[in-house]
């Protein structure tokens, strides 16, 4: 399912997620202790967290929507807007900066034809800056989905992106 299809918001979360959340809530000392993990799971399933899913999660955890959204908007890895199929996160912290991350970023943006924070028109890629990925010994570092890359020099970008495009086909 693409994120674009999901913008027509599903009002309810699927049963298995609901069960998981109820389970998690029961295991936490207080249901709200499961909040961040629940939102992560919603995002893992749907790519991002839409209003309806947020509201449903809040109900399960006995929180208000304002309360849960206060959390969802606080943490930078939780997306409250649709993102592309592949979220490309390029480290913009200090070691990568020293090792030329800004050049890599320019190349990446040019390759995909977007600015940081944007999604390609085909919905394949969203590029975001990220703080230090703990891969400073392989700087510049980049995370695509769950895959860690590094060092990513400008000349490596085409290969990585083309590979992902090819893999998805």
């Amino acid at each position: 399912m693409s994120t674009a299809e999901l913008t027509a918001q599903d009002a309810e979360l699927p049963k298995d997620l609901v069960d998981t959340f109820i389970d998690m809530a029961a295991h936490e000392h207080h249901p709200r202790g499961a909040a961040i993990e629940a939102l992560r799971l919603v995002q893992e399933r749907f790519g991002w967290i839409n209003d309806a899913h947020l509201a449903h999660t809040a109900r399960i955890l006995g929180m208000s929507q304002a309360d849960l959204d206060g959390i969802a908007t606080y943490f930078n890895l939780l997306f409250r807007k649709p993102v592309g199929k592949n979220v490309v996160m390029l480290c913009d912290s200090v070691s990568c900066y020293i090792m030329g991350a800004e050049q890599t970023r320019e190349r990446l943006c040019r390759k995909l034809g977007v600015k940081m924070g944007e999604t390609t028109p085909d919905g394949e890629f969203t590029v975001l800056p990220i703080v230090c990925l703990g891969h400073c010994d392989h700087a510049p570092a980049m995370l695509v989905g769950k895959d860690l890359f590094g060092p990513v020099r400008p000349e490596d970008i085409d290969g990585i992106i083309d590979d992902i495009r090819a893999r998805k086909k």
Partner: peptide, 10 residues
């Protein structure tokens, strides 16, 4: 471990 330049705990 989010201190930039730190990659030991990983």
């Amino acid at each position: 471990e989010m201190e930039p330049g730190t990659f030991k705990d990983r």
